[in-house]
Nucleic acid binder design. Sequence first.
DNA 1: AAAGGTCCGTACCGTACGTTACGGTTCCCT
DNA 2: AGGGAACCGTAACGTACGGTACGGACCTTT
Lengths: 222, 222
Amino acid sequence: MTLPPDTQDETLTERQQAVLDAVLALMVEQGGELTMNAVARRASCSKESLYKWFGDREGLLTATVRWQASKVRTGNYDRTRLDALALRDSLIRFAANWLGVISSPTSIALNRFAIAQAGGGTPGGGLGAIMLANGRFAIGARLKPVLDAGRDAGLIDFDDTETAFRSFIGLVGRDVQIRLLLGDTLRLTPGEIEADAARATDQFLTLYGTANPVPGLPKTNA
Amino acid sequence: MTLPPDTQDETLTERQQAVLDAVLALMVEQGGELTMNAVARRASCSKESLYKWFGDREGLLTATVRWQASKVRTGNYDRTRLDALALRDSLIRFAANWLGVISSPTSIALNRFAIAQAGGGTPGGGLGAIMLANGRFAIGARLKPVLDAGRDAGLIDFDDTETAFRSFIGLVGRDVQIRLLLGDTLRLTPGEIEADAARATDQFLTLYGTANPVPGLPKTNA
DNA sequence: AAAGGTCCGTACCGTACGTTACGGTTCCCT
DNA sequence: AGGGAACCGTAACGTACGGTACGGACCTTT
């Protein structure tokens, strides 16, 4: 009669968090073959405890996704005083951070799981909806204030913040995520991430910047 | 003793093609739960025939991916004489075509399958490698001649064709593919596809175009 | 008409996995 | 020290699915 704890809000024991970390580790190294037996063995816990804590396999997976999402949340990027250089710096740091996240083995493994079961008949979306809410839409909510502030400061110009935001993440991410998800052996070193972030940001500023661009960065046809 | 027909090159009976179409239909409507029984029932054939024709489940899946890929191949986009308007038109048609492909239910379902098993221990990449070869890399090989021709004609300028190409598909695709894969209810009408293709192309030409842009398209901060 | 091949429908087998149940151990509370 | 809760390890159960085997129908060939 134990109803599934779908309303769990950060109420996780240290032990349970360790279990979820074990799930993440298994997802990363073992890939799509994730059995309850393997989780129990890896986490050194009994399957009975797994079912008591998370209800069923689906509950364990959603708890894992939420757990990882709660670990990824970083600081905001908005500032009070904003000049062209500060805006560019904020955008570059945002882009580099996001590239680091989406190219991390954990994010790749988690997205694979969410995508694999997004097609199933699970109503409500399941893991895919959670990944979208905590990934795509969360970063949108975090970056849009920066873009709006840049527009208010007269540094950039656009009609729709959403459209500008999508152009930016398109320039930043390009085909990285889909290639990594499909198993492409694509290594992003921290140096490449930083360079890509700067290139994408400068391209974005070229497209949406006003007449006062950052000096010395007219066009970057890298 | 029937060795698996891994060297099948378009040698498919009409019956077998119908079976693969049934697999595609099942992938689209049923999602990740694809059993051999369901395929046999849907295609009105026996499981024995499935195993005789495709070896095993993996062979059936790879044959399906190849079959779909062979259906998507469209005409090339290169031209002999190229002015600014012709280049822009080629890019727009290419972008619209690609957007239509990646937003089609068949492509989404197929990518879901390839991604789901790309994490598994299957060496060589499996379906993911096939999807990459026939998707991402195939369109690259098809578009790069156009970009190079545009550069030779002095219409656009860049150092690395690959980098320019990746910026282009970033501007075109943005976050469409990952959102659809995660189950986002995102509908792309033909009109939106055409508008997105034009916007992305004009943004690309703004970034990489030379001093002679298409008249009347200086900046499109849509 | 007889023979042989191809294929459909179904039944069957072995295994893997999700889920449940149980005995033994550790730890906390009083 | 005694009682109880939580938990670990393992065994057991039911189902689902990949893969195989078999009987019968249809079609072609001679």
